[in-house]
Nucleic acid binder design. Structure first.
Lengths: 172, 172
DNA sequence: GTACTCATGTAATATGTTACATGATTAA
DNA sequence: TTAATCATGTAACATATTACATGAGTAC
């Protein structure tokens, strides 16, 4: 079983502590979602595959009469995660549809470029605000890599919004 | 036929002038690839679909004895492209595996974070250099949106590399 | 009693990558 | 003559989204 990026998201989340599929999804949605999303349709089948491969182990942990499966890393899972983190040749894949539109903006009507820059600026301001809210709620923890990436998200989105503003002024 | 982002890549490239599938792929590889890639396995079937939908038209333009199909936009294709560019609700999807690794770096060994920051810095310096080479070759054309996005790519990759350097110094 | 959250899962569909197959032209 | 480039395409596989289905617990 070749682990995919999604495998590593699940493994990584479980390295932060035992979790149910539902909890993993909730955590993804307020953290890695901004640069790597995962849906239920990926998470639940992935949990089964990882369990079958011996990288995680599940146990019934019902809450009241509500059934619930909580998974945790096995030693094999932990070393698979570590190996992935330490692997040098990684794929830096990037996708941003707003840049695609901007790239082709000259094929749109007169104000298209300015409108796209304005929309992108607004969007990234919004994401930065969301991330700041998460930061305020979760607290600053400069030692943690998770916080480092949160900080990256804030700085990154601020920078993009500022860039859009600057270019909008410059070129209209 | 619902157009996908890939449809729009093809449509957008043809808006810059008639092209063969091979030429579209070559152009994508030195432009949108940095934020939106497309493979032959997408481009050729997509050309057929777009032609069937009446958004583009193909014509035989062999070079010597080498067969070759050149496509161009129909009026319907042009307006589909315009509509997409002007649509306000766009998906700002982003994926960056290097951030995923960084996010989980505390689950790796001691120097993992610094190593990941260094690798990311190096990677983005490299992309910035590649983009500057494209800029030098293609020339600066501040009026074109394609150039604006190239400029964005350079600034963006420089910024990320600088951010990594700064954080590497700060936190080790 | 109704809406929301917790919780798990699947099926259909869409999308994308990789490897392979083929063959002509061009430059060294 | 050999390698690179131009050129088109498909099949197998991998990945991901969306919608649907189910049902218990909790807060109003």
């Amino acid at each position: 079983m070749e682990p995919s990026p999604t495998s590593h998201v699940v493994l990584g989340m479980l390295a932060l502590g035992p979790k149910s599929g539902y909890e993993i999804k909730a955590l993804v949605d307020r953290s890695t979602r901004f640069f790597w999303a995962a849906s239920y349709g990926q998470i639940y089948p992935e949990l089964r595959r990882l369990a079958a491969a011996g990288l995680i182990e599940g146990a019934d942990r019902p809450q009241g009469g509500r059934k619930r499966m909580v998974y945790e890393l096995t030693p094999a899972g932990r070393s698979t995660l570590r190996a992935w983190i330490e692997e040098p040749p990684e794929t830096h894949e990037l996708r941003d549809e707003s840049l695609l539109k901007l790239f082709f903006a000259d094929s749109g009507k007169a104000g298209a470029r300015a409108a796209l820059l304005a929309a992108k600026e607004k969007y990234h301001r919004g994401v930065a605000a969301q991330l700041r809210a998460i930061e305020a709620e979760a607290g600053k923890d400069p030692k943690r890599s998770t916080y480092l990436v949160l900080r990256y998200g804030i700085d990154f989105n601020d920078w993009i919004a500022d860039w859009c503003k600057r270019e909008r002024r410059r070129s209209g």
